[in-house]
Design a protein around this nucleic acid. Structure first.
Lengths: 211, 211
DNA sequence: ACCTGAACACCGTTCAAGT
DNA sequence: ACCTGAACACCGTTCAAGT
């Protein structure tokens, strides 16, 4: 808990804290969420299996740091992607969804830790929730900007944001967990698929006059 | 593998196979997916920790049986729920989504095994995939019936089904994993929320003339 | 045919001890 | 201040042995 606040922690090989985080991501990327063990991560970082406990109170604390890092990366990716459309709220809404799926597909290890089964309480971790809320707020802002411009139906923006989140989260999980393997139509690529899926919702929320 | 084919397997206390499945569901319901261990399940069934290996080749095989059972239950629930609207394809489409979320919320332990991280290969298990495909086919049929009646936009029904599945799956996961805890508007209940979320998509796919 | 106990190679976590 | 080794209570899985 407290250890994470310190900027740099040195050990005889350098920065163990970050070495452990990097090893965690490598391990999850290579072998999935289940393969992550403190002992294997320590092995990869070249330290004894008890050394990680100097930096993280337990396994859950290490995962919580990875989850928060993931949400921060997601926020950054979303902001970068929607910055391309400063004058078009509807495009910002659409691309926030596409950017979300892009993030999940590009960083499946992070995504699995962020949304995977909550081993013990990163869902309760204040820092993690704060980063997650920031990401959700971006989506909400996009929707409300559209409503202000008459581009999306009036109505409860929270409900709409929840619908949008459900869709991109569900699609991301189906992709990552290999439930969806192929594009519905031959010749499509992943980018086409992301547009198709997000468009289904986008048509559902926008007003008729924007057709 | 072969053991599962036999209808009834007796041991000194009765039907160990089903006792193990029941204990698995109890355990996952009580303490989450991580708490499931062969040894604990055996303990609850009152047998030695090696006895389960007489009935399931390994941990993954037990989970695969639970997953297939879950998909079969899902299919049954979907069919029951849409049977209420024999003459209204649009209502069948809408209620297939609601019924899906109902199933996930009512059977979170099954749902987590069905869609949770694939410990090792229930995703590849032919019987599991077959049951899952049957469920997906129900959704596809609903959409195609709507299209035949001019109630949903023409277009690739696979893509639409994928969008719909993404949304209900995402919403289910967010609910089960406690990312979504409260209704967006005070006074709403879960049924309201399910309608709101599925309606967002439903409006996106239907034709204008059905308004 | 079905079940058990010992055994093996793993875990997470704690703690006294080393530098 | 940071790291280690031994120790404890767990896992999944195998296998020879019991009834």
């Amino acid at each position: 808990m407290q250890a994470q606040k310190k900027k740099t922690i040195r050990y005889h090989h350098g920065d163990l804290q970050n070495a452990l985080i990097a090893a965690t991501l490598d391990l999850i990327t290579e072998q999935g969420n289940e393969a992550f063990t403190i002992r294997e991560v320590a092995r990869r970082a070249g330290v004894s299996h008890t050394a990680p406990y100097r930096h993280f109170t337990d396994k859950a604390a290490l995962l919580a740091v990875v989850a928060r890092q993931g949400f921060d990366m997601l926020v950054e990716h979303l902001l970068t992607r929607i910055a391309n459309f400063p004058d078009d709220p509807l495009m910002r809404f659409k691309y926030s969804g596409i950017a979300y799926i892009e993030f999940a597909v590009d960083h499946p290890a992070h995504y699995r830790v962020m949304f995977g089964p909550d081993k013990s309480g990163s869902r309760e971790n204040a820092a993690v929730r704060k980063s997650a809320d920031t990401a959700f707020q971006i989506l909400l802002d996009c929707i409300e900007a559209c409503q202000a411009g008459g581009l999306i139906r009036p109505g409860n923006s929270m409900e709409m944001a929840l619908s949008a989140w459900s869709m991109v989260h569900g699609f991301s999980m189906l992709l990552i967990d290999r439930f969806v393997r192929e594009t519905p139509t031959p010749g499509q690529d992943l980018a086409d698929m992301m547009s198709l899926v997000t468009d289904s919702l986008y048509f559902g929320l926008k007003t008729e006059k924007t057709d």
